[in-house]
Design a protein around this nucleic acid. Structure first.
Length: 284
DNA sequence: CCTCTATGGCGAA
DNA sequence: TCGCCCTAGAGGC
């Protein structure tokens, strides 16, 4: 589930469910038992996300640092009146509970207790996060515009830009007709700023809905008379995991290749490698 | 039962 | 670049 929108959504959910409450914190699985003990019975102040990092703040100036990695999940559940907290199911690394809610963390790549200084160090290593109002896209542009690395690699580099994952990478490049292998330094400033603005909009929508939807109204299933996507992540997308299927815009077969260690997807006609002086390009 | 996959990221080679 | 870590679910035999 986790790209940046998921973590921001979870930060909000945790704040609403537990903010200001004294909570019980445990590690049913045992792997976070020592850390959990240090914030058990302490007031949970709030939660905040930076890119894909989540920090849950406690009143004793300690933070639980969570990174879901590829397979982690954090479920935040509000309890109805009189409803009991269920027994943990599976490998629950961390459980937070109050009288009215509980949260279970499974499969996270990071679940550590940190100080404010350690939290700040993580933030300092991160590029601007499109979901944060204080983010500065120029910091990312300074890196992209000087790099010969592919833009598809740069977008996934959390020190360049924080919170973008494999779906947003594929989709924002498609929406801006940019081939993933194109070197960062060949992008024009206007293209980058348009992509940034688009990421802010798409990811804000992702926080609102809890899924990644990137297709424009004219390409939605109803508008095109095609069946909606039946997929475990739910959202409507142009190219992500659509390898071999026809592009919603031009009908060409969507291609894939491993880039920055992950499958990258693009349309060879809509996202040409080269851009001729006339402004048109050939297939990749 | 086994193998594979997944919206990440790290360190060793 | 590769292998490995985290966990759950799907699919094959």
């Amino acid at each position: 589930m986790p790209e940046g929108h998921t973590l921001h959504r979870l930060a909000t959910a945790l704040g609403e469910a537990f903010g200001g409450d004294v909570v019980r914190v445990g590690s049913p699985q045992g792997r976070f038992a020592d850390g959990a003990a240090r914030v058990d019975g302490v007031r949970l102040v709030g939660a905040e996300a930076w890119g894909k990092h989540l920090f849950v703040e406690f009143a004793n100036e300690l933070f639980v640092h969570v990174h879901l990695g590829l397979i982690g999940k954090l479920d935040v559940v509000r309890l109805g009146p009189g409803e009991a907290v269920p027994l943990p199911v599976g490998e629950v690394r961390l459980r937070v509970q109050s009288g009215s809610a509980y949260a279970d963390l499974r499969g996270a790549i990071i679940c550590d207790l940190v100080t404010a200084e350690e939290r700040d160090a993580v933030v300092a290593r991160s590029g601007p996060d499109p979901l944060r109002a204080d983010a500065d896209p120029e910091r990312a542009w300074a890196r992209i515009s000087r790099s010969s690395k592919p833009i598809g690699t740069l977008l996934m580099d959390q020190s360049v830009l924080a919170g973008i994952g494999n779906v947003y990478r594929a989709e924002v490049l498609f929406r801006h007709r940019i081939h993933p292998l194109r070197p960062g330094r060949t992008l024009r400033s206007g293209q980058w700023h348009a992509m940034w603005t688009d990421l802010v909009d798409l990811m804000t929508e992702g926080v609102r809905t809890g899924r990644i939807d990137t297709v424009r109204p004219e390409h939605e299933p109803e508008a095109m008379g095609r069946p909606p996507r039946a997929d475990d992540h739910g959202g409507e997308v142009y190219v992500y995991r659509r390898n071999g299927q026809p592009c919603h815009v031009c009908g060409s077969k969507v291609r894939t290749e491993v880039l920055a260690g992950r499958n990258s997807f693009w349309c060879p006609r809509c996202q040409p490698v080269f851009r001729s002086r006339a402004g048109r390009g050939g297939p990749a």
